[in-house]
Design a protein around this nucleic acid. Sequence first.
DNA 1: ACCTGATCATCG
DNA 2: CGATGATCAGGT
Length: 228
Amino acid sequence: METLQPLRHPPRSEEELMRQASRLAGYSLSELATLAGLPIPGDLKRDKGWIGVLLELWLGASAGSKPEQDFAAIGVELKTIPVDKLGRPLETTFVCVAPLTGNTGVVWETSHVRHKLHRVLWVPVEGERRIPLGERRVGTPLLWSPSAQEEEQLRRDWEELMDLIVLGRVEKITARHGEVLQLRPKAANSRALTEAVGAHGEAILTLPRGFYLKKPFTAALLARHFLL
DNA sequence: ACCTGATCATCG
DNA sequence: CGATGATCAGGT
């Protein structure tokens, strides 16, 4: 009697989402891919989003590109996160693209970063490269919202970074800026360009950027979960 | 060993 | 191009 199967519709509640996500814990990616009829790439070099797509499929998120949350009806965003054997993140977490123009008057309260991170379902997945992709296993899911302290850290970093963008200093920003949130390139390659504000208020072309959560931030929120 | 900057696939 | 999904990999 095989009852494990992908959700055929978007989850109608956080409870339904968590019930399904919890059932996936312990399964390998090859098991989930086979049951879902999804081919397994040899590695992630040319399929960097494959694990995310696989989990979207299993959890009933409409895969592909939408500017919405993954589970818009219940206001939840899905993030798969590669972790080592101790559950610590191996990568930073992409949040959203940074707007480089038209930012006069923007505020944290209505920002894309705050909206995206309001409610997140974290699904840890074994990510060490020595483990063959298909043998990597899915971990225990965590439904998270920023604590007051976490939101304050995020807001401070966002405001600092947005100030630099508005003031035409985007090209002075490095990944070292920000305590928990960083700004880094987010593009197909280094030749992709987008419009931004220059040092003298003029329009310039620069690399598209994205907001990412630094590893210590996600490590802390995952650790809190596993220790409780 | 780790982090920052660079990169890969797909879709509308 | 820019949004979605992220990881790669060389330099420090």
